[in-house]
């Protein structure tokens, strides 16, 4: 069964096609990326399970693609619209990576408050209730994970500019 939404069947064909090409490219790298140990039988080779995984992946992708082609998936759907939706998720990946980059610079608490507030605004929420909620959720997240559960997050470079007592306190708890 392919996706039951006809507008996405063309996109599915493309996606599985790319996955199949990727698996074929991985096959082409087999000679350089896996060491063949001389004197060992095939089933004791270090690359055996990589090969099994690749074989299953290629077989599954190939047969699924053939099934899609037989069902006429290539003629269906607004591929461009679906690809645009996929591309829109890249923006949020960008937001996520900027947040990851900001944490060691600004510190976990300031970066989280800034990230949540900015992304909430970006999504078009301007009501004070949701903006306050974003700050509160950010604060609660830091308090639960860093202050209480002592999650391993380094102190921000910005904390270095705080007075010495506060600097340690912020580095450990926020």
């Amino acid at each position: 069964m392919q996706t039951d939404n006809p507008s996405r069947q063309g996109a599915e064909f493309l996606f599985i096609g790319v996955l199949l090409l990727f698996s074929l490219w991985l096959w082409s790298q087999l000679g350089t990326q896996v060491t063949y140990v001389e004197g060992q039988p095939f089933f004791k080779q270090p690359g055996l399970w990589v090969v099994i995984g690749l074989a299953i992946m290629t077989l599954g992708c190939g047969l699924h693609l053939w099934q899609l082609w037989r069902n006429g998936a290539t003629r269906q759907g607004e591929l461009g619209h679906e690809l645009l939706i996929w591309a829109r998720s890249l923006e949020f990946l960008g937001w996520f990576l900027v947040y990851v980059w900001l944490v060691p610079v600004l510190g976990y608490l300031p970066a989280t408050v800034l990230f949540m507030l900015a992304l909430t605004l970006r999504l078009g929420y301007t009501e004070p209730r949701l903006l306050q909620a974003s700050v509160l959720v950010a604060l609660a997240t830091v308090l639960i994970f860093k202050t209480f559960l002592q999650a391993k997050i380094p102190g921000g470079a910005l904390y270095e500019y705080l007075p010495s007592g506060l600097r340690n306190f912020f580095s450990i708890y926020f």
Binding site: L19, T35, V50, I52, G53, L54, M57, G60, C61, L63
Partner: peptide, 22 residues
């Protein structure tokens, strides 16, 4: 079929990196 492909991808991903025996 696609579940089979995804299982293969999972087996492949789980085996990337240094082999603990050789």
């Amino acid at each position: 079929l696609i579940a089979l492909a995804m299982l293969g991808l999972g087996i492949f991903l789980g085996n990337i990196g240094m082999d603990a025996v050789t």
